[in-house]
Design a protein around this nucleic acid. Structure first.
Length: 578
RNA sequence: GCGCUCGUAGCUCAACGGAUAGAGCAUUUGACUACGGAUCAAAAGGUUGGGGGUUCGAGUCCCUCCGAGCGCGCCA
């Protein structure tokens, strides 16, 4: 347990119990990084009222009961009652040396592992993904990776849209144009154009629209082989497209993670039936609705969750409720994280409310909507192409790679094939890191120049930091895995870097709890910044003596491992050279 | 109209109720035969949209006003 924040938290808790009784051991010792020391405890201040004593006295009392001799120099009380901790250099050095032999880099395995469903990406199939899918895919994947690494059992769930009215339309259109037609070939090359063709006919030809609706019924009843065959073909084409896209994006989703809306089709009747039996669902304007308390619409009237439409069809609310039940009853999840756009916040609040009303979510189970903010264009509006159209994900990724290549071409003389691979890593890494590094629920402005810059808090800067470290080991002719220290902490830059490295586990654990990958981005950037400062101030290969050289090589190795682990958990690719 | 989210440095963004609100970019200055300068060091830049309140302590919690984005019955 090399994380000083956790160690100190435990020690202050002991001191609280010793000073004021066991009742106080449960209080949060409020140990935080400090600008005035390495860490501070704010525990004394909130206790002042409770104990009826001056906070400064309480702080002194805590200090007198503290046993931190092995970790810190004697703690000092300052300000209104803060207890400041300055770690001993030897303790930091020993802890970092220990980090080198810890495959988990100080990250504790979850004491009570949970089954966690992470729903993310979730595109509509038979359509190309657009920029709106970028964040849910990238952020969701990072959340899944981090949660998994923290020791939980993660079930990735790609809740694709494969079952709505539009599939009747697409299949009917495919029948009309002919499966072997040039038009049908568009499904392989340009599915959006095929979709638009179908849509245009749907809107202009009432007969076609009627046939499309019939086709949906045939599809959902699953008893028309010809319909089923075409749907299967559409699905296979989509799986192919998704495999390619996720591979390029370095996203861990596979075919096995696809559990689309169609999967829940046979459970929808039970959802409607059980809600009716429980007396929760009532008919309103011919539709079967649940009115969860506390939700009102435009004119102040109660807002419904529509379970069954007037025409007898089910919609996405029904599917989402079936999904909740499946996850609780069949997957036995302890936690479900929905990585979906923030515009659907109301929808999910209502779905979760209905599911709780129906008793489908046990009190101990957490259902969360991890809201994803919009990706905006330079003007703050929706991101669009120059022509005003929707930006497809593939064109966005291609441009990122192209921009990375252009920059690499200017500076480096790498072989063509190697350069292509590096350009891909850098371009994809830049986009992903920019996307991950802002709080997931706030909108951000998409800016090529900022994200692909090799300076500042960007993917390429972090990738570059790792290549510099690798370069040191290449130059030294040793393998970074062979650097075991011991680490000595003397120079200020060494101390700051070492201290930061010890915080890896706490950050990972925190991100797993909050599903906020941007905090991990902030952390790796801080480590990279401290490393470059160290790199400037502390010669490694030309260190003054052998012990210092060994120590600094070990610090480099620890930094490299923390950075690669952190970027790996974020899903940001790391080229060996660039 | 109602609800949700938000408003922080010129720009893009951080900040688990804790001391003097931090980074990056841009700007200005300094350091180059360098373990990869795709770098580092430093300066300057703020009444945290306005106003009240709670608290020992508020960018953070509550109220109110202003402004923005999103959402609000049979699309998903």
């Amino acid at each position: 347990m090399p994380d000083p924040q956790q160690v100190l938290t435990a020690r202050v808790r002991d001191a609280l119990a010793a000073a004021f009784g066991a009742d106080y051991a449960s209080a949060d010792p409020l140990v935080r990084p400090s600008a005035f020391a390495d860490f501070q405890s704010n525990a004394a201040l909130p206790l002042a009222r409770k104990l009826g004593r001056a906070p400064h006295d309480i702080a002194n009392e805590i200090v007198s009961h503290l046993d931190v001799e092995d970790i810190c120099v004697p703690p000092a009380v300052s300000g209104p009652g803060f207890v400041n901790f300055a770690l001993r250099d030897e303790w930091i050095a020993a802890a970092v040396t220990g980090l080198l032999d810890d495959p988990r880099l100080g990250t504790p395995l979850a004491g009570a592992p949970q089954v966690v469903v992470v729903e993310y990406s979730s595109p509509n199939i038979a359509k190309e993904m657009h920029v709106g899918h970028l964040r849910t895919t990238i952020v969701g994947d990072a959340i899944a990776r981090v949660t998994e690494f923290a020791g939980h059992h993660v079930m990735r769930d790609n809740h694709v849209g494969d079952w709505g009215t539009q599939f009747g339309m697409l299949i009917e259109y495919l029948f009309d144009v002919g499966e072997d037609s040039a038009e049908a070939q568009l499904l392989r090359t340009d599915p959006n154009t095929f979709y638009q063709g179908a849509r245009a006919r749907f809107d202009s030809d009432p007969d076609f629209a009627d046939r499309s609706r019939d086709r949906v019924v045939k599809l959902q009843s699953r008893n028309d082989p010809a319909t089923q065959l075409l749907w299967d073909e559409l699905m296979e084409l989509s799986r192919q497209y998704l495999r390619d896209t996720y591979a390029l994006l370095r996203v861990t989703l596979t075919d096995d993670d696809i559990r689309g809306e169609s999967f829940y089709n046979d459970m929808l009747g039970d959802v409607a039936g059980d809600l009716t039996d429980e007396g929760l669902a009532v008919l309103s304007d011919g539709a079967l609705c649940v009115f969860p308390p506390g939700f009102t619409g435009r004119d102040g009237s109660p807002l419904p969750v529509i379970i069954r439409k007037r025409d007898g069809g089910y919609n996405y609310s029904t599917t989402d409720l079936a999904t909740v039940r499946y996850r609780v009853d069949k997957i036995n999840c302890d936690r479900a994280i929905y990585v979906v756009g923030s515009e659907q916040a109301l929808h999910f609040r209502m779905i979760f409310a209905v599911a709780r009303l129906a008793g489908w979510i046990p009190g101990s189970t957490s259902f969360e909507h991890a809201q994803i903010g919009m990706v905006q264009g330079p003007d703050g509006g929706r991101l669009r192409t120059r022509e005003g159209g929707t930006v497809t994900l593939s064109s966005l990724l291609a441009e990122g790679i192209e921009r990375a290549r252009a920059i690499l071409n200017e500076i480096e003389t790498l072989e063509g094939e190697v350069r292509d691979a590096i350009a891909e890593d850098v371009g994809i890494g830049a986009i992903k890191y920019a996307d991950l590094s802002t709080a997931r629920d706030s909108a951000y402005i998409f800016d090529w120049d900022r994200m692909i810059s090799f300076r500042g808090n960007t993917g390429p800067y972090l990738q570059y930091a790792t290549t510099r470290i690798r370069s040191i080991f290449r130059k030294a002719g040793i393998d970074e895995a062979g650097a075991h220290g011991p680490v000595l902490v003397t120079a200020p830059a060494e101390r700051e870097l070492a201290l930061a490295l010890l915080g890896f586990g706490a950050v990972v654990t925190g991100v797993a709890e909050t599903a906020e990958p941007h905090r991990l981005c902030g952390y790796v950037f801080e480590v990279a910044s401290l490393f470059t400062a160290f790199y400037e101030q502390c010669p490694v290969l030309r260190a003054e003596d052998e012990a210092t050289r060994t120590s600094r090589l070990a610090l480099c190795a620890a930094t490299l491992r923390v950075l690669t682990a952190g970027l790996g958990l974020l899903g940001v690719p790391i080229p060996d050279r660039m």
